[in-house]
Nucleic acid binder design. Sequence first.
DNA 1: CATTTTGTTCAACAATATTGAACTAAGACG
DNA 2: CGTCTTAGTTCAATATTGTTGAACAAAATG
Lengths: 256, 256
Amino acid sequence: MAQHDNTLKSVDKVFKMVEHLKTNGGKTVTELSQELDMPKSTVQVYLNTLAKNKFVVQNGATYQIGLQFLQYGMYALWNEPVFPNVKSKVEELADTTGELAACFVEELGEAVYVYGTEGNRAIRTDLTMGDRSGLHCTASGKAIFAHLSQERIEEIISQRSLERKTPQTITDPDELREELKQIRERGHAYSKEESVEGMRSVAAPILLDGEVVCSISLAGPANRFVGERFTSEVPDIVKGAANEIELKLTYSESGL
Amino acid sequence: MAQHDNTLKSVDKVFKMVEHLKTNGGKTVTELSQELDMPKSTVQVYLNTLAKNKFVVQNGATYQIGLQFLQYGMYALWNEPVFPNVKSKVEELADTTGELAACFVEELGEAVYVYGTEGNRAIRTDLTMGDRSGLHCTASGKAIFAHLSQERIEEIISQRSLERKTPQTITDPDELREELKQIRERGHAYSKEESVEGMRSVAAPILLDGEVVCSISLAGPANRFVGERFTSEVPDIVKGAANEIELKLTYSESGL
DNA sequence: CATTTTGTTCAACAATATTGAACTAAGACG
DNA sequence: CGTCTTAGTTCAATATTGTTGAACAAAATG
C-alpha cells in the first residue's frame, strides 16, 4: 500500500463488501465474516450501516444488495441531458431494423453501456445497463474514443491495457491510432467480432459543441452484417439517427 | 443521537455526501465544504474515496454521481428472478393498451418502482426507476400491501405514516385495512387519484408460492379510466397478464 | 502583476473503527 | 425435553484511522 492514499479505509471496505455481495449473491453475517476475513462483530457494524442507508437489505438471515443503488444510478443516467433523446431514438432504431440498438457513454476512460433495446430478430447479449468495458474493443467505444482530445486518447492508451477479448480485438496501440483516424474520417466505427465472436456492429458518435457525449450503435450477427449492408446501409441508418439526435440537442440547447 | 447506533459514522457521512450530490447536482470541493459544513480537507478525502471506487466522477472542478451506482442497481433488479418475465409483459401491456404500464416491488415497507413503459397515448409521469413511495397510496403498492402477511401489514401501518398525497389518499388505518381486504377478495387494486391528481390505475399482484413478489399496473388519465372499462375491462387485462407471468414462473421454477 | 479564490498536502490529535469475550437465540439431535 | 451446536448480537477497551488547520500550490480574477 502507498504511504498516503488519502482515502477512508472503512469506506473502501464497505464498497468491497458490497462488491462481494454483488459477485456472490446474498450472504449471512458468518459467511461474510469468513469470506472477507473479518470478525463477525465488524461485519455486523458494516451491514447495519449499509442497511440503515438502504443500500443493503436484510432477508431473513441473509443480506442482499438493495434497490437504493438503482435510484442513484438512474439519477446519473438522466443527469446526462442527451439521455431522453437517445433513449427514444435507440428504441426506434431497434424497431425499424430488428437488431440490437445501444448507447454507450465514456466515463473514466471506459465505455459504459447505458441503454439498449432488442429488435424482434436481435441477437441476445448478457449486457446489463451500467456494464463497463475498454473503449478499444467495441464499435461504440471506438466511436467515442476517436473523438476525444488527442491528449486524452494518449492518456487512456497509456494508462489502460488494450485487453484482448477475441482474436480480432485491436491490442496494438499503433494499429488503434490508425483505426481511430479512419473512424474520424469515415464518421462511424465498426466492430468485426472484436468484443464478442460472431457479433458485428456499427456505431456513430453524438457530438455537441465538438465534444463527444455518447455513441449509438447497431449490432447483429456476423452473417447478417456483411457486404453492402455492413459497409453502407447500416452506417447510414446509424449516422442518420445520430444526426437527428444532434439536431434535437442543439435545438433544445439554444431554446433554453 | 442514540447511545450506540452501531454504525460507521464516516460511511454515513459518505452517503450523506452522495445524497447531497444527487439532490443538488455536481459540486466543487469548496461548495460541498460550505454546504455540508465540513473542512475542505475532509471533503477532499471523502471525494477521493468515492472517486477511487467510481461512485463519484470528477468533471473539471466539479464532482458528480457516477454510473457505478447503475451497475449495482441493475444487479439488484435482475437478481429478482421475476424481472425478465415482468419486463417483457409490462412492455406488451403498454403496447396493446397504449397506456402506462409499470411494475413495483416491495422493499423495507415501501413500494419501489422498478420498471415501466409508456404506450403511445400514455400519460407522462416523472417516475424514475428506483423511486420509492408508501405502499398505501398507489394501486401497485396496495396490491402488494394486501398480500403481505397480517403481521407485516400491521407492522408497516404502525411504523410508517400514511402520508397524504392527494385529497383521495387513504390515510386512516381502519379504512386502509378494509381496502386491503377488498383487494384480496377482488384480486386487484384501484387507485382513484390517490397519489397523483387526474391519474387512475389498476394493479394486480404476482404471487409465487403464496408470497407476493411484485405487482403490475396500468395507469391512465381519469377521463379514460371510467365506467365498464375501469371496473372490468382494464382489471381483466392486468389480472390476465399477472396470471401469465405467474404461470411462466411456476413453470420455469419446476423446470430447473 | 497583484490579489483573491480554490484545490491540495501533511502531521498532530481526537475520534471512532475494531476486536474478542461474553451473551442470547435458534436449530439439531438423541 | 434437555443438551449440544451453531449463528447472531452486544459492549467496553484499545489501536487504528478519520479529522483538522495551517501552510502551500495553482488557477482565476481584476
